[in-house]
Each structure stands twice: as structure tokens, then as C-alpha cells.
Simulated assay, not measured.
Amino acid sequence: MPVGRLARYALFAALISISILTYLREQEAPTQTTRPAPVPGIDRGAQQSTAKADKELLPAGSGFDIYVLALSWSPSYCAAEGAKANRQQCNSGRPYGFVVHGLWPQFEQGYPQDCDTAQPRDVPYSLARQLSDIMPSTGLVTYEWRKHGACSGLGQQDYFSVMRQAMNRVSIPSAYRQPDLRPEINPLALEQAFVSQMPACRRTG
């Protein structure tokens, strides 16, 4: 199989595999706030410490059932897209491993998208850049906000705060913590590594 096809497949599989390891908030009330239980083994440096983040009450949002945090393996994306890859992510001089692809409000069956909202459609550059450590493409930040974030019932600041909190709670398996690994990865091994690392995550597929 050509490297390009393999890299694309690995990226797709990584996205699907990590998507089924759900950071979920089962909604009990539209205005409910939630304090997630601490998860040990967080390996990613964040702008806010985990201890501080765990103490924060974040708005849950409304109009959906669960959140799905979708991650992608950056080396696969950069290798597959080559010169077409996002420069902020692939040519910044900073290597990335797993990055956030999106935080998706979901129904038990299906999902809302492109919802009407009184919030601005564009994400301010200053806010998008605050996410650069976990979501390095400002274009993707705006795209995900329009397609998914607008359906969360939250303002932009709150939606991206929930996204960061979700990422803070993901424990990356040791074999995938170094972003300079070759882009080709085994999707099944990747999935099993995450299930073993975070046994509390339930599989949905």
C-alpha cells in the first residue's frame, strides 16, 4: 500500500478509534454544570494545571445527549497532505502528536450540526491561538465552532473551555507520546492501547 494511502488510513482510523473513547457528559438538565472526577496519568502539558481545571465548574450545554472528543494523529495528517497540509500545524517547527479534531455534541443516534445561534460565526484569532497547543489550526477552530460548537448551547469561550477540559482528561499511551514517531500506525493497536490506558472509557463500536 502506498505510504500516502496508509497515512490517510491511519489518520482516519486514529480519529475513529479515539472518537469511540468518549469523554461524555450525560445530560440531566439543560443548565446543569458538571465537575468531572479526576483521571490519573494525564501526560499533556496544558495552559491550566489539571488540579485547577478539575476544580472548575464548566457549563454542560444543552440540546444534545453526550459529547464526543475526537483526536487525530498529526504526523499522519502532515504526511498525507504534504504541501497541502496546514502550515500552522505541520510547518510551525513544533512537532505535534495527537491533536483535537473537534468536540462534538451528539444524540444517542445521530448528531446536530450547523445550528442557528446568536453567537458570532467567526472565532476571534486571539481565542483560537489560545488553543494552539491542542488544536493548532485556527481555520479548524472556526470550522469546528460553526459545525459543532454552535450546537452546544454554549458561548465560544465556554465551549472551548469544555474542549480543553476534555483533552486534559485524556491519558495518551506511552507508545504515542512522542510526535516524531513515523506517521504509519496500526489502528487496532492504537485502539487497544487507549482502551488499556483508560479502562473507564466505554467502547461504542
Rank of each mutant, 00 (worst) to 15 (best):
A53I: 10
E28H: 03
S152E: 02
G139Q: 08
I42A: 10
A85P: 03
R129G: 05
R8I: 01
A70Y: 10
T31D: 08
Q113L: 06
D158T: 10
V99R: 12
S72E: 12
F98K: 12
H148P: 03
G102D: 08
G93M: 03
S126Y: 10
C78S: 12
T33A: 06
G82F: 12
K52W: 03
S17D: 13
Q106A: 01
Q109S: 12
S72I: 12
R25N: 04
P75S: 13
N86L: 13
P36D: 01
P187S: 11
D180T: 14
P2A: 07
A118Y: 09
C115A: 13
L57R: 10
Y77G: 00
E184D: 02
L190D: 07
Y23V: 00
V99G: 10
P183F: 09
A29D: 04
P40Y: 07
G61E: 08
R182E: 14
A80M: 08
Q156A: 06
R94I: 11
I172L: 14
G93P: 02
L190P: 06
R164P: 01
E28S: 02
Q197I: 00
P112W: 07
S137H: 09
R25E: 05
M135Q: 09
N186K: 13
Y9T: 00
P173L: 11
I20W: 06
R121P: 02
M163A: 09
